[in-house]
Design a binder for these strands. Structure first.
Ligand SMILES: [Zn+2]
Ligand SMILES: [Zn+2]
Ligand SMILES: [Zn+2]
Ligand SMILES: [Zn+2]
Lengths: 155, 155
DNA sequence: ATATCGGATGTTATATGTTATCATGCTTCT
DNA sequence: AGAAGCATGATAACATATAACATCCGATAT
């Protein structure tokens, strides 16, 4: 096999544009006030011809690879990244009352975590930081719970 | 209904002892080098008469309530707490190569997180902090992956 | 002792979340 | 046209988690 590599137009990276489904899903995530599960997404897409889980998961995979979406581990759900930045250290403040999720960044926390780990010879590649509690709006009031997951969901 | 409260022997807390199953599960978790999923546990307990998921989940619930075990959200698995202390803010360093999990505490990190949240009026009730990466032993060497989850599992 | 209550367990079935596999069609390069 | 690469579709399997209802048992209360 000759020709090790023809010039290659210009590219260098994953410049391939998002597919229709991928855009649609990112859109749904952006619209939503709260994280959506893969099934939530699937439900909303059924009417549009998407009817199998793998499609959704594949799209999510792509979006996360590109730093456009995040997975919330403690909820098994996904949100759009509000400030696409390619980072592995984002933190999330999840209100267990109203379900909203705020993406927060704090370099001090990042640094501290790095420190703590390094101190014991651990090399961090990815961190999951998820704070559960009550957001400003829900605090004070509303200590009776509505468990977030079933609030304002699927009519 | 009179008698607001008879003296009450001595108690103060949830002094009820763990059930046999609960002890057994805590034992299995302590023994294990790595987090075990609910189904891992169920597998190991089948020979002992436990044969349904709810039993396992219920026991785990109790153990976590008492601060004797933790759930690792990013793995859907559980570990014994190596220093029972009743805290909602523990951090875990998870080696994605050998699968070991170290429970680490750092009051500075805790404080920082509290700060960050408070700054935006968020009240934290529980934090999930899970660092993925490579432990000291696996670092440097072993960058070829074995994905941890399927290493040394169920022969 | 009898009634009662709460916690733990058993049993069954189901919901939710995730992945493997194979088939198909499209775009790009040769 | 043929080959390679990749996105999608479809079906099924697997993994994780909970609902609902019944039974059992030890601790209190009457
Ligand atoms: Zn982000
Ligand atoms: Zn809220
Ligand atoms: Zn602990
Ligand atoms: Zn390791």
């Amino acid at each position: 096999m000759p020709q090790p590599r023809p010039p290659l137009p210009a590219l260098a990276a994953p410049a391939r544009p998002l597919s229709a489904t991928q855009v649609r899903i990112l859109d749904l995530l952006s619209q939503a006030q709260r994280p959506l599960s893969a099934y939530d997404l699937l439900g909303k897409l059924r009417s549009e011809g998407v009817n199998a889980p793998p499609t959704v998961y594949r799209a999510l995979e792509r979006l996360m690879r590109e730093g456009l979406a995040h997975r919330i581990e403690s909820l098994n759900a996904f949100i759009a990244c509000n400030m696409p930045h390619h980072h592995d250290l984002a933190a999330f403040a999840i209100c267990d009352h109203c379900g909203t999720v705020a993406e927060v960044r704090d370099t001090d926390v990042e640094a501290r975590l790095g420190h703590v780990a390094a101190r014991s010879g651990f090399h961090v590649t990815k961190a999951t930081v998820e704070l559960h509690g009550h957001c400003a709006a829900c605090s004070g009031k509303a200590h009776g719970h509505a468990s977030a997951r079933e609030t304002g969901h699927t009519p």
